[in-house]
Simulated scan of single mutants.
Amino acid sequence: MIPFNRPPRTGNEDQYVLDAMRSNKISGDGQYGQKCQAWFESHLDCPKTLLTPSCTQALEMAALLIDIQLGDEVIMPSYTFVSTANAFVLRGAKIVFVDIHPDTMNMDASLIEAAITPRTKAIVPVHYAGVGCDMKAINSIAQRHNLFVIEDAAQGMMARYEDRYLGTLGHIAAFSFHETKNVTSGGEGGLLILNDPRFIPRAEIIREKGTNRNLFFRGMVDKYTWVDAGSSYLPSELQAAYLWGQLAQAEAITRDRLITWDIYYKGLAELAAQGCVTLPNIPPECQHNAHMFYLKCKSLEERAALLAHFKKQDILAVFHYVPLHSAPAGERFSRFHGVDRYTTQESERLIRLPLWYGMERNISGMVIEQIKRFYLDRR
């Protein structure tokens, strides 16, 4: 069977994980945690990063840092993972969804301003498939209305918008290191990116169960104590060691995935020209990271037939998010502003193809061949 994903493995992870296991510190913020955070701060050119056990928890920290209160509103796309919304719902926010742009599956920035009310506190752009949202427009809107911008860059590591990395364009951002992402910290993991220095002191406190433990370890207080609300947002040193084993190969991982992405794009270009499928669009201001390759069928029925064809050929391809506003919890915790012109329609057409680091070229060729055969048989 051709799987949908294989977790990235560079061969460097074993030595660092074993070293961490043999050390006297396997809880968080050991030598590998510090190395990883320093790598990101240097690579992204940002003031501070903090490893977290997951991207979900990084987003939860962001909601705490901007002091989301009961009744606040947060604007985001409905076409996203549930964590994007849950992080703010947990703090009492009402989620306000706006429609997506069909070319990128990202939030349509032109619809944001009309969704703003006196209760709006933040905008949360989601960089789908590692393709940047229209951050110039989003940041301009946020500045005019004094709103926070929290980037959900779960899929965005190593991708750029104009000349800047995704994750460095808002006040706060979050990366994911889940096993399906380009880089993993052992199956789960995340990163909180703090681009606004005013959030750094409180972020360290929230991450350490609401204590000033970091100040204690720096010798700035003689004992640490409970000073604020917080939780345990610290990953183990084993997660950090695994991640450290991949960071040195981050550029190589991206290049390898881009090769597979290009093979898919060129191999399916003829079908797209014939109007059988729609392929991803990369705006000129964006440099993507090949996090995923998707195509769009003409309809939900055609997508179901193609997925069934893949299954018969032992190829695991998948559809993606069910729009959050159509879910039971979405009906309770959110509202959709304006017309759902594209969110549901486009989500029902989309299929993600197998793609992973080190994917053999004959495998992508087999997937392309089966797609061509499916559409040939339908003529």
Rank of each mutant, 00 (worst) to 15 (best):
Y165E: 10
L300F: 14
F81P: 00
F199I: 09
V74W: 00
A142N: 08
L258K: 09
M107A: 10
L376R: 13
S176R: 02
S176C: 04
L307T: 09
I253D: 05
G330L: 06
G190L: 01
E113W: 11
A203V: 09
A174P: 05
M158C: 10
N146H: 15
D152K: 02
Y242L: 04
M107N: 11
Q69S: 11
T117D: 14
E302G: 05
G338I: 05
K312H: 09
P323K: 00
G189W: 01
C55W: 00
Q69R: 14
L350R: 06
S54R: 00
Y79R: 11
N24M: 07
W356N: 12
D163I: 10
V318C: 06
E204C: 12
T344A: 13
I2C: 11
N5K: 06
V322S: 15
N362D: 15
L247K: 07
S299G: 04
K25H: 15
L243S: 02
M366G: 13
L376T: 12
Y16W: 14
R144I: 09
R255Y: 08
Y161M: 06
C297I: 10
C46R: 08
A240S: 15
M107R: 06
K266H: 13
W356T: 01
A248N: 14
S326C: 13
L194A: 03
N106Q: 06
M157C: 04
R341W: 01
P47V: 13
F175Y: 15
Y79E: 12
A154Y: 01
I138Y: 12
Q155Y: 09
I193Q: 06
I363Y: 04
W244A: 03
I68T: 14
I138Q: 09
K223I: 02
V277W: 11
K312G: 14
W356V: 01
